[in-house]
Structure formats: structure tokens, C-alpha cells
């Protein structure tokens, strides 16, 4: 699996905001033997819909089949397939790392290099928050590991298409109050 390389695909899936939809999507992946690498679900600008950002690796899941099968689910409204090269991706990570005595300043230094925020400080540990491209989160995790990671959570990535460098017609979404 090469999630940060070229093989992974990001599917931005607009779905009806109803109960059971996540289960339908997840069920489809498991039934067809596809592997979900990461999944983020969030409300959208329109309350009837939610957006799922699904990262799949192209090896376990022939991306064209995944998209076509997803499209057959009735609550799936629209799928945007974002090849990694054409997307900006971000992810958020919370990590609690051992940072007692002498190591506290080293961890703090690393945090500042990665533009991480210190959310909490305890007697022998610190909780950091870092947002960024997934490989940045990987790098930080690797560098924090020697100190001793107590707990770690990542949100799964969200992504938007890269913008055109040429003039183009932008389509605006309607939001409440706008």
C-alpha cells in the first residue's frame, strides 16, 4: 500500500444526510473487498447532504469499479475523484507524547518546527495538535516516536481539488446567511 505515493485516490462523495448511509458505503467497501485507508464524514453547506472523503489505495480497489459501485447507492448524489496529484489534502492529528524533565524542551522544539500547538501539558507528558499534509503528520510521528507516544489520533484526510492557474468560472455554493 502506498498511500502517500501515486496509487492512492481520494473520493469526495456527496451523500444524503440520512441514517444508514455510512453503513451502506462502508458495507459496499467490505462486500467488494476494497480497503478504506481513511474516511472523514462532515456536514456540508447544504444540510440535506454530507460529504465523505474516502481515501482508498488503488491496488486493493480498482478505482473505476469503486466509483461505479458507489454511484449505484441511491443516497450517493455525486462523486468527485481526486487523483492525489490534483488535490490539496489536509489532516489533523492529536498526539500525547512522553515529555518529562529533560525531554520537555526537545519536544517543544519539535512542535515549533512542525508548527504544532501544545494543547495540554502534564507532569510527564504533553498533548500536541498538528495539522498538515498527511506526510507531514507521518514525519512528525516518526520523530516523536523515540520520546514515547502515549496516544495518537488522526482525523483522516479531507481534500479539495487544486485550483486552476488560468482564469476559470468559479461556481459558488449557497450557504445559510450568505
Amino acid at each position: 500500500m502506498n498511500v502517500n505515493g501515486v496509487q492512492h485516490h481520494i473520493l469526495s462523495v456527496l451523500v444524503e444526510n440520512r441514517f444508514g448511509v455510512l453503513s451502506r458505503v462502508a458495507g459496499l467497501f467490505s462486500r467488494r473487498g476494497y480497503n478504506i485507508y481513511s474516511l472523514a464524514v462532515s456536514p456540508t453547506e447544504d444540510e440535506r447532504y454530507s460529504r465523505m472523503t474516502i481515501v482508498v489505495d488503488g491496488e486493493s480497489a480498482p478505482i473505476e469499479q469503486v466509483t461505479k459501485q458507489l454511484n449505484k447507492l441511491i443516497p450517493v448524489i455525486k462523486i468527485n475523484e481526486l487523483p492525489a496529484a490534483d488535490a490539496v489534502e489536509r489532516e489533523l492529528m492529536l498526539v500525547t507524547v512522553r515529555a518529562d524533565g529533560a525531554f520537555r524542551s526537545q519536544v517543544t522544539e519539535l512542535a515549533s518546527i512542525f508548527e504544532a500547538k501544545i494543547l495540554d501539558v502534564g507532569y510527564e507528558a504533553m498533548t500536541l495538535m498538528v495539522a498538515g499534509a498527511p506526510d507531514k503528520l507521518d514525519a512528525m510521528t516518526e520523530l516523536l516516536a523515540p520520546f514515547g507516544i502515549v496516544e495518537l489520533q488522526r482525523t483522516g484526510r479531507i481534500a479539495l481539488p487544486k485550483l486552476s492557474r488560468e482564469p476559470s468560472k468559479l461556481k459558488l455554493v449557497r450557504t445559510k446567511g450568505a
Binding site: 444508514g20 453503513s23 451502506r24 458495507g27 459496499l28 462486500r31
Partner: peptide, 14 residues
């Protein structure tokens, strides 16, 4: 029933 029949129906409703 909804969960059990989800993978074997084109769609289902509760």
C-alpha cells in the same frame, strides 16, 4: 433487517 438486507437489495427503507 435493514442491516442484514442492505448488501442483497438494490435499496431498502426503514
Amino acid at each position: 433487517t435493514l442491516g442484514i438486507t442492505m448488501p442483497v437489495t438494490k435499496h431498502n427503507w426503514l
